[in-house]
Simulated scan of single mutants.
Amino acid sequence: MLTRGCYNLHTGARLECKGYRLYPRGYFEDLQSPEIAVMIHGMQNDPSDALEKFRIAKRRLRALGYRHPVVGYSYDSDVRGLLLDWRRALRAARVIARGNGAHLARFITDYCREVPGARVRLLAHSLGSELVLAAAGRLARRGVRVESIHMFGASAPADSPGPRGSGPVLSRAVRGRVVNYYAPTDAVLMAAGEQPLGLVGCKGRAFRGYVQRRVRPRDHRFKSYAEVMGSYP
């Protein structure tokens, strides 16, 4: 599943786009599973990088005993100008990620309509956490729920699971748990000069379904976080 080509990679401005596209199309036409997991990658992933993240997710979930289909969500995260002005590039990437929340929410809504009673689980790495939270807002307004959300090295604000953040939305959009794998040693998140959820965890009160797990991955890559994931879901 992809929305590539929907945003300007320099500014984050939205281009002409009709929403998400399914690939390979025949796979989705036959997919009627009562449960699926959707992997959302982070920043600076081109199409081939995104595909590798999905393969990593699928291998790790299979190793942990998860037998339902794993679907990848690929979006315009490979913004330009990171070396010239990383702050501007990060702003553009965030605009793109949050805008893609509408596309992901539409896919989930469509899938649940196509397969009544379907359970959809989300996995999000780094910037993908901001995309997922944006999607949760849309789903909550539509009365659609996902089964769970797992976040790894999340760049979303530390108060996201709380009452002043996305906590109220998550309580309506998630049937089960939101699991946050955070790492105080994550050098990439530290370099951003912020205190995101993936670096410090949630310090205040969070909604009832929130769980956080302190881990020590080798680095910020999704592969490293996947290696320290001990169970799923």
Results as ranks from 00 to 15, higher is better:
residue 1 M to Q: 05
residue 2 L to F: 06
residue 3 T to L: 11
residue 4 R to G: 03
residue 5 G to P: 06
residue 11 T to Y: 05
residue 12 G to P: 03
residue 13 A to I: 00
residue 15 L to M: 14
residue 16 E to A: 15
residue 16 E to G: 15
residue 17 C to N: 08
residue 20 Y to M: 10
residue 23 Y to T: 05
residue 27 Y to K: 10
residue 28 F to T: 02
residue 37 A to F: 04
residue 39 M to I: 05
residue 39 M to P: 01
residue 43 M to R: 15
residue 44 Q to K: 15
residue 46 D to W: 09
residue 48 S to L: 14
residue 54 F to Y: 11
residue 54 F to M: 09
residue 58 K to T: 11
residue 59 R to N: 13
residue 64 L to M: 02
residue 70 V to R: 06
residue 70 V to I: 15
residue 71 V to P: 02
residue 72 G to C: 11
residue 73 Y to M: 10
residue 74 S to W: 03
residue 75 Y to M: 06
residue 86 W to M: 13
residue 91 R to L: 08
residue 94 R to C: 04
residue 100 N to E: 11
residue 100 N to P: 08
residue 103 H to S: 15
residue 108 I to F: 09
residue 111 Y to V: 12
residue 113 R to L: 08
residue 114 E to S: 13
residue 119 R to A: 15
residue 122 L to Q: 00
residue 122 L to G: 00
residue 124 A to D: 02
residue 127 L to R: 04
residue 130 E to C: 09
residue 133 L to E: 08
residue 134 A to H: 11
residue 151 M to H: 04
residue 152 F to Q: 03
residue 155 S to G: 14
residue 156 A to Y: 01
residue 157 P to W: 10
residue 159 D to N: 14
residue 160 S to Q: 00
residue 163 P to C: 07
residue 167 G to C: 04
residue 167 G to D: 05
residue 170 L to C: 02
residue 172 R to C: 04
residue 172 R to A: 15
residue 173 A to G: 11
residue 173 A to T: 09
residue 177 R to M: 01
residue 178 V to N: 03
residue 178 V to G: 03
residue 180 N to R: 03
residue 182 Y to I: 05
residue 182 Y to N: 07
residue 184 P to Q: 10
residue 186 D to C: 10
residue 187 A to Y: 05
residue 188 V to F: 13
residue 190 M to T: 04
residue 197 L to F: 13
residue 199 L to H: 02
residue 201 G to Q: 00
residue 205 R to H: 04
residue 208 R to Q: 09
residue 214 R to F: 01
residue 215 V to G: 12
residue 221 R to I: 03
residue 224 S to A: 15
residue 226 A to F: 03
residue 227 E to H: 09
residue 228 V to R: 12
residue 231 S to K: 12
residue 232 Y to A: 00
residue 233 P to D: 00
residue 233 P to S: 00
